[in-house]
Every structure is written in structure tokens, then in C-alpha cells.
Write a protein that binds this DNA or RNA. Structure first.
Length: 336
DNA sequence: AAAATTTGACCCGT
DNA sequence: ACGGGTCAAATTTT
């Protein structure tokens, strides 16, 4: 990340992202090749192999999608001037600009050219909790949909206009009694704030017991029963210089992002966190660990703090979510 | 004051 | 013309 940063510097952000995707894909491919080359030496786990293949496939998908957004939206490289271009498609529809300037009455409203429909990739998840997914979203619309019982909400990336990030998502409640939402993600984030969470090594998301918990000390999986022994430990060590939760409240979602960024700060800056060498991380891979994004925060529907994770490159159907046992109140939270 | 949401009008593909 | 998606003014929240 350091040596590449020197020559990546100055490139547009989406190009950097594409390079990162390709680099990761190369690494994954090397791992896979190694596994296939010495099937005896390295313990073979078909599940892990499949995970690798999935991630490589997702890498290609992401990269193509990023490149696609580069070609159709070259303005991404110059965020300041993107407004007029953002709403123009490649068509000859831009004739409406020079004319009709004087009268901008409510009735004679300015007719902006709408943005071309995003035909980038989509992926949806069905979840029972509307927890913070690590990105900053701005709601821009809400509609009821023909054969749906509830309204659909439309969100775009907060940094759409500063940074030209085209990522968007839709949230549709499917049922209420046990709350169930279908969340559709559209497009990739090209903004700098790619993920507010750090990467952490997590156990295979396909394991039987979905009660995944994280040990921030070793980046490994923690058994449920050990949670109580790990969290208080951090409490003592991670005290000063980290954000406080004093102003958190339970009543709004915003609290979860506060909480989350605090936690993330603790995780990513935890002095106890071992800095994995590249080789070491490769060893981790051989031990069937799969790198994932991890989030945590206040879960409004279950009224507790949750930790959850999803596999990094594939954003569909692999959310793993569980509560942290023994944490029923913010007061139980280990920090502060 | 600034940022985020709400809401009806508007746009566009089918 | 319809319906899903987006805009932007008004309103609310921070």
C-alpha cells in the first residue's frame, strides 16, 4: 500500500480503486494457484477454494464496473465541474440549456436533463435490521411501488457531488411483523471514504454457527463465551485519544454510526493489534480464514449492539449477523 | 447556518 | 400512458 501509493498518487480515485481490485485479484489468484499446485502440502478446503474463486470473480466484476463507470462518466476525474455533466447522458439532449433563461416560475420550472439510468450491477440483500452498512448515504426520494405494500426509499452516496461517487441503494420494507427489508445496492463507491470500517480477518462466513465474534487482539474468531474476557480487556487499554460515546442516544440511527466510527477507530488504531506481514496474512489464508469487512453498531430493531460482517468482495447474501451476548445496553459496551 | 429529509412534480424507458 | 427513478423546494433536524 505504501510503495504503490507513490505511483498511484495523482490518479483519479476510480482508477486507483481498479488497481486495488486487480492487485487483490492477483493475490487471490496466487493463493489459489498455490493451493492447486500443492494440494497435499496445503490443506485443502473446498469451501475456502470456492470462496477464493468467488472473490476473484467478484474482483473482475467490480473492476469492469469501475472501468465502465470511467468511460461513461469521465467527469469523475474533475469533481468540481461535474454537475452539468452528471445529468447529461451521451445523447444529444443537451439542447435545452441555452434557451429559456428569464422566467423560472414554479410552473415554468427549470427542466434539468435527468441522469441516465444507472445500468451498473446491482445486488440485493434481505435483512431484518436496518443497521449501518459502513457507507454514508443521503436519502433523496421515496415512492410506493405497484405490487408492494410498503414504500421504497432511495439513497445516494453522500459524496456524489463532491467526488462523483455514483453508488446508490434502495431500501424496501417487505414485511413488518418481523421486520424484513430488501436492500439493493447499485454501483460501486468511487469516493475516498470507501468504507468506514477496517478490514479484519474473520472466520469463514459459511460456517454452521453464525454467531461470529471478533477478537480485535488477534483478528481471529472468538467463542461466544470468551467475549466477556476480551472486551473488558480493551476497555482498560483503549482509553485515551479515542472518541467517547458520551453523546450517544438510543433513539436514532445516527447513534449507530457514531458508535461504529468510535469502535472502528479503536479497532484500527488499537496498539495491540498485530500488524500482519504479507506472508503472515498468507498463512492466515491457508488456515481457511477469509478476509471480510466487519461492522458493528447499535441495532435498533433488536435494541442491542451488534457486530456483523460480510465477505469483502462479494456483496450478496453473505451477511452474517449476530448479537454480542451479554451486551444489552450501551452501558455494557466495553469502551469508556 | 448547514446538513439531512420529506414530498410532489418531473423525467424517461417501456 | 404508466410506473419506477430522480429532482429540488420546502421543511425538519443537527
Amino acid at each position: 500500500m505504501d510503495q504503490s501509493a507513490t505511483w498511484l498518487e495523482g490518479l483519479p480515485i476510480n482508477r486507483i480503486k481498479a488497481f486495488q481490485e486487480l492487485n487483490q485479484g492477483q493475490e487471490l489468484t496466487n493463493n489459489l494457484r498455490e493451493m492447486l499446485q500443492w494440494p497435499r502440502k496445503i490443506k485443502c478446503d473446498p469451501e475456502y477454494e470456492d470462496g477464493l474463486v468467488m472473490q476473484v470473480a467478484a474482483m473482475f466484476k467490480n473492476t469492469l464496473s469501475i472501468l465502465d463507470s470511467c468511460t461513461s462518466d469521465q467527469h469523475l476525474q474533475m469533481p468540481a465541474a461535474d454537475l452539468c455533466l452528471t445529468y447529461s447522458s451521451e445523447g444529444p439532449i443537451s439542447e435545452n440549456f441555452g434557451e429559456s433563461e428569464g422566467s423560472i416560475t414554479p410552473a415554468n420550472r427549470k427542466k434539468g436533463v435527468y441522469k441516465k439510468r444507472n445500468n451498473s450491477w446491482k445486488s440485493s440483500v434481505v435483512t431484518s435490521t436496518l443497521v449501518d452498512d459502513g457507507h454514508a448515504w443521503r436519502k433523496y426520494g421515496q415512492k410506493h411501488i405497484n405490487n408492494a405494500n410498503y414504500q421504497r426509499s432511495y439513497y445516494r452516496c453522500t459524496y456524489k457531488f463532491d467526488q462523483g461517487c455514483l453508488a446508490a441503494k434502495q431500501v424496501q420494507m417487505i414485511e413488518d411483523k418481523p421486520p424484513k427489508y430488501k436492500i439493493t445496492y447499485i454501483g460501486n463507491h468511487t469516493c475516498k471514504n470507501l468504507q468506514r470500517s477496517p478490514e479484519i480477518i474473520l472466520d469463514s462466513p459459511t460456517s454452521r454457527d453464525t454467531s461470529i465474534l471478533l477478537n480485535f487482539e488477534t483478528k481471529g474468531l472468538v467463542a461466544k463465551t470468551e467475549v466477556g474476557t476480551y472486551f473488558p480487556y480493551m476497555k482498560d487499554e483503549v482509553k485515551e485519544g479515542y472518541p467517547s460515546h458520551g453523546n450517544l442516544r438510543h433513539d436514532r440511527y445516527s447513534s449507530s454510526s457514531d458508535l461504529q466510527s468510535s469502535l472502528n477507530a479503536c479497532v484500527s488504531h488499537n496498539p495491540l493489534e498485530p500488524k500482519l506481514e504479507p506472508e503472515m496474512s498468507s498463512e492466515f489464508n491457508r488456515e481457511h480464514m477469509i478476509p471480510s469487512k466487519v461492522h458493528s453498531g447499535w441495532d435498533d430493531h433488536h435494541d442491542t449492539i451488534s457486530a456483523w460482517a460480510y465477505q469483502s468482495m462479494t456483496s450478496t447474501h453473505d451477511y452474517e449477523m449476530d448479537h454480542i451476548p451479554g451486551m444489552n445496553d450501551l452501558n455494557d459496551f466495553p469502551f469508556e
